[in-house]
Design a protein around this nucleic acid. Structure first.
Lengths: 261, 261
DNA sequence: ATCATGTGTACATTATATTGGACGAAAACG
DNA sequence: CGTTTTCGTCCAATATAATGTACACATGAT
């Protein structure tokens, strides 16, 4: 049911883990929930959740909102997040890069990172076309579903990758299963080429491009992506890739590093 | 030393509280620290801090950065903060309001909120003048030191206010003590007038203006402020106040409320 | 009315998280 | 070189946090 975090069940959960499970759950749901609902949906004891929620409320990590005793992420988290963003000051240059990409390609441009063992769109610039994008900002998406996913795990060994990505995530939205071996092959190719493009496996009408943005550790800390209609994407493949690599090169200089010594 | 959170000492601290103490401390310091340093500076047992830090690292709440095993706030916090910002979507209109204010007054405009029982500048727009501002974005400042502080606690009773603000915070940076009774009088006047202005008690050359931005609960959820050179501020007092109140009225409509039903 | 279901609170039990202190390695220092 | 300080890890003891269970009170369906 609850796809347990680590090992088997039957053990007591640690408060801290439970707490962040609650926070992540609220983030995923993107709406205020009653403690009772949270407990039911994450499969945690009600008494524990009530206790944790009260604790988090006292700390400003959660806030009452939406009435009926519903809670959602609190202001303190905003402050902490702002401090992170300020320290690893990627926002400004990131926006500039997306702006450029959108100008040059008229397609939807995204800046993506790993969130734990999921892929997530951190910032997005909508393209010129009125275009239904499959993933919203901040949503957690299984790594194998995305072009960027190939890049974001490319620094790991095959074994590490398989240990890192939940088995379940190889099941595509269509219900089909992606062969992990095939995925690994694509990762290795990607690593060699420095980019990955494919017809999206999440929808049936887009072509996705992804290139890495290098970080401190010498591997992809993030990616820049384009999402284009298939015919467009295929027609402009080379040019789009050039634009992306250019943007990524600029970004790889300053950002994602600490500003202070 | 560590101005303890609640009651007396001698008791065991709860992991969660300790954890958020660590996070807040890192935010305040605005730099990566070694677990050892954290433990020493917040006065917590080393073994506890090491355990907590490892736990937070595993959750992506903290990250290694700066080498030597130093840690700082992690990406997960950024994501959570972004979700908060997205939910209570004040950023856009807030920036617009600050922009307008800066245009109209050429002074430094700030958007401020409470962070727990401290005052903090959430967003700032520098004025035309090359002007040394006393408080940076995201820094926690004692409530009594600021004009906005009078507004942000105005919905409480006198007793609540005195219980809310740490005694220590009535000591000004100069070392002088502000009389709590005098502070309360100012708060009540402020509540009546709907604004507060004064010659800053943090520095000796600015005049500060603050007006409330009303939130869900019917009281000041935030403030808009101007920080001006004293002569300028006094000369333009009425006009500046009009600008502020105008901006605050616009802001009080939509923002700081949830976007969803 | 009766029952099922959702909601918040209170409390005893026990598994365990927090803690102090011990240990060794490495770095700073004289 | 010794000596002192900083640093990270390990471990047993016990204070306590997480949990199951029971209770109180709605609400709405039958």
């Amino acid at each position: 049911m609850d796809a347990g975090l680590d090992e088997a069940a039957g053990k007591r959960a640690r408060g801290l883990d439970r707490a962040f499970e609650i926070l992540d759950f609220l983030r995923q749901k993107r709406q205020a929930l009653k403690p009772n609902e949270i407990a039911a949906q994450i499969g945690a004891p009600r008494s524990s959740v009530y206790e944790l929620v009260n604790l988090l409320l006292r700390n400003g990590i959660l806030e009452f909102t939406g009435g009926e005793g519903r809670v959602y992420l609190g202001r303190k988290l905003y402050f902490l997040g702002a401090a992170y963003e300020n320290h690893f000051d990627f926002t400004r240059e990131c926006e500039a890069a997306l702006e450029r990409l959108a100008d040059e390609t008229r397609e939807t441009a995204q800046f993506c990172m790993l969130d734990g063992n999921k892929y997530t769109v951190v910032r997005m610039r909508e393209g010129a076309r009125p275009f239904r994008i499959s993933t919203d900002i901040g949503q957690s998406v299984p790594i194998p579903w995305t072009a960027s996913g190939r890049l974001l795990v490319a620094h790991m060994t095959n074994e590490e990758i398989l240990a890192f990505i939940p088995q379940q995530d190889f099941q595509l939205p269509s219900g089909e299963w992606l062969d992990p071996a095939a995925f690994l092959t694509e990762v290795r190719d990607t690593e060699r080429d420095g980019h990955f493009t494919f017809n999206s496996i999440v929808d049936s009408f887009t072509h996705c491009f992804a290139v890495p943005v290098m970080g401190d550790a010498g591997h992809a800390a993030a990616t820049l992506c384009l999402v284009a209609p298939r015919d467009d994407g295929l027609a402009n493949r080379d040019r789009y890739l050039d634009c992306l690599k250019d943007a990524a090169r600029r970004l790889s200089h300053a950002p994602l590093q600490s500003r202070r010594a």
